[in-house]
Amino acid sequence: MNELSQTPPAEAGEQRITRPGLLEAWRERVAYQALSLGLVCALVALALLLGNQLTRQRIADAELQDRLAVLRQVLPQSLYDNNPLADAYRIEDAELGMLEVYPARREGQLTATAFQVSTIGYGGPIVQLIALDSEGRILGVRVLSHKETPGLADKIEVARSDWIKGFDGLSLASTPLDQWAVKKDGGQFDQFAGATITPRAIVKGVLRALEFQARQSTAQSNQETRP
């Protein structure tokens, strides 16, 4: 940081001497320095507080719209008349960790469920949204956020490639467990040239969501048959 100050532009300089006495003397005092630093920090903090007040609601609204737009991509409008975002809940799963569940209901009946799942890819967590209908078929998968290599692994985005649509219609019943892997691992899903870890993470996330729903429904039917 000191390098920056070593070469003052002499010709652009303005004589500080013209500013007389008092301020000059004060500036050298520790108390002045500490106070000015504290004052500026306080003012900046105040400005940030005000800025946050002004923008918080709008940002929250915009993010809600974003999530609704993605949800519409995986959940056909005909399947629900509720607001899945409002009915969303978080659930802790032993295998998946925290996941968010968006239930889609029509006339009170559960028709489909969208799961927000996070798996670890090559560049960090990949957050994906997986929608399953009540029979456990995949309605759609979308990647919400990722930090994978652009050009190599970003084909998981629906804007760049149709690869992610290859999951549509599959279910645990239609595809045997050992096929839920990329081709390199002996499964049925394509990897990308130069990127295997990314599609592997997606397949893993989808499979986990399917298994989670299967576990839940067996648990539910056990509960129902017990009494």
Binding site: R27, S36, V40
Partner: peptide
């Protein structure tokens, strides 16, 4: 004129970050 050279860097960074 009011920025003391001794604390100018944290001050400037604070303002810029804000």
């Amino acid at each position: 004129h009011s920025i003391s050279p001794a604390v100018r860097n944290p001050l400037m960074i604070g303002i810029i970050a804000g």
